[in-house]
Design a protein around this nucleic acid. Structure first.
Length: 436
RNA sequence: UCCUCAGUAGCUCAAUUGGCAGAGCAUCCGGCUGUUAACCGGAGGGUUGUAGGUUCGAGUCCUACCUGAGGAGCCA
């Protein structure tokens, strides 16, 4: 007897097979019971007929509750003409063994009806089983795989950066402070500075891992813990990494569209806008962006960062991600290289996703001058001693280099068409949520 | 930190001007051989977020607090 995955059920048409999984839905109609099974690879309907199975099997099928775990054996067959079932094939059950029956006194909390977001987030450990959450996290997996393949295929070395850090990478945002024996440590908010050290050792590197920001942000685009991929390229200019960024985003889209069409359909995602994502992406200077925004009645002033509404307004002008470059230095991190032609702007860039999903990438060319960096560290009131090792990179074989960071959850939220990034990570952490 | 909104059954929500605490789903019992968030009949299920106040009477009005959601600022 073959034990099969639901994903492969169509290849077993006309044969007996066993499936191990969970009961997603069930409907009973007197002498016929419909069980919708879930095994992590898909959904399949199983049919139990009263006059075709032993009485105890029929009775056990009748008593099954939602999300009970079970093993079902039967004949795989095409769904009869005029009937519907997920996947096009169904199983006529010959035998059925409950592994654990969910007790009726304490049924599975997420019934197939509407629920509020607070309840669903409290039940996140169980909510993951729903077909919508399953589809989102499968897309997330493809986004991550595409990202790693992209860099691995271009000669990049994965270099893991520390999560405990001694000080801010960018003093502007809030850090999570944690006790570290007799001193204080902070959870990383970027692997950036360590990537620069690694780039001097390996040339082309990337880091991929969790990032923590203690920002008290309560918006659809923010988590306190999110995953970021950060490439850093020795001898690259701002223009070089803009090309890298548009190639990366385009390759991710191509892979997801190729491998996840059924998941995107589950999410009711309109894929037409996604099919247009290909290089080159439009590029705007910050100056051009500000004048476009002013012509659209934004009250932005030169020198300040773009607000969420500004980002959406700009992104709506284009059918693919838009790259805004050369921001005012005052709005950016201390390590950004000034534009030699206009020192008041930095060789920095952000990539804004279409359809109002906001900033998915931020990066730029790193400052090389030791004196300039010392001055900027003073201006930002950062603890100079914590950056001594970083300044060594300018003392020993100084080199121009550039890189960026891409937020995985924002990319997933955009591709899946989600209303909030909290669904794009298995267990979201937000300002008011630490559980489950 | 600020602004707005919301807390009533396990879940999603009603409850007229302040006047008997309700429905659907879920659960249990019964019916139905092709269901699709199945359907039909019945049953059980409540400290109305917490504390105080006004009133003959508060889910409803007032005060404080708690919890959550959406947004701003900040960011990926």
């Amino acid at each position: 007897m073959a034990e099969i995955a639901i994903r492969d059920a169509a290849h077993h048409e006309g044969r007996e097979a066993t499936i191990r999984g969970w009961l997603y839905h069930h409907r009973s109609s007197g002498k016929i019971i419909f069980l919708v099974l879930r095994d992590g690879t898909g959904l399949m309907q199983a049919i139990v007929l009263r006059n075709a199975v032993p009485p105890d099997v029929f009775q056990q099928a009748r008593e099954l509750t939602q999300e009970s775990s079970l093993e079902v054996t039967g004949t795989v067959r095409r769904v009869p003409e005029g009937k519907r079932a997920p996947g096009g094939v169904e199983m006529e059950v010959t035998d059925l063994k409950p592994i654990q029956r969910v007790p009726a006194e304490r049924p599975f909390p997420i019934s197939p009806k509407e629920h509020g977001i607070e309840f669903l987030l409290d039940q996140r450990h169980l909510w993951l089983r729903s077909s919508r959450q399953h589809a989102i996290l499968k897309v997330r997996h493809e986004v991550i795989t595409a990202t790693r393949n992209f860099f691995d295929g271009r000669g990049f070395t994965l270099v893991d950066t520390p999560i405990f850090t001694p000080a801010a990478c960018e003093g502007t945002t809030t850090l999570f402070e944690v006790p570290y024996f007799d001193e204080k440590a902070y959870l990383t908010q970027s692997g950036q500075l360590y990537n620069e050290a690694a780039a001097a050792a390996f040339g082309r590197v990337y880091s991929f891992g969790p990032t923590f920001r203690a920002e008290k942000s309560k918006t659809r685009r923010h988590l306190t813990e999110f995953w970021m991929v950060e490439p850093e390229v020795a001898h690259a200019t701002l223009e070089d990494i803009l090309v890298l960024a548009e190639d990366l985003v385009s390759e991710i889209l191509a892979r997801v569209l190729g491998n996840c069409s059924s998941h995107l359909a589950t999410l009711d995602r309109d894929v037409e806008p996604l099919k247009k994502i290909a290089p080159p992406f439009p590029r705007l200077t910050y100056d051009e962006a500000v004048s476009i925004l002013k012509s659209k009645d934004s009250d932005i002033e030169w020198g300040s960062d773009l607000g969420g509404a500004d980002e959406t307004l700009l992104a709506r002008q284009f059918d693919r991600p838009v790259m805004i470059h050369r921001y005012p230095s005052q709005a950016k991190a201390f390590y950004m290289e000034p534009d030699p032609l206009r020192p008041e702007v930095a060789l920095s860039a952000d990539v804004l996703a279409p359809e109002g999903y906001g900033e998915i990438i931020g990066g730029g060319q790193r400052a090389t001058s030791l004196d300039f960096l010392c001055q900027r560290i003073r201006e930002h009131r950062l603890p100079a001693e914590a950056f001594e090792w970083y300044l060594d990179l300018r003392r020993y074989g100084n080199f121009p280099h550039s890189g960026f960071g891409m937020g995985i959850e924002r990319v997933v939220a955009w591709i899946c068409g989600l209303e909030h990034v909290r669904e794009a990570i298995p267990f979201p952490r937000t300002i008011y949520r630490l559980t489950p």
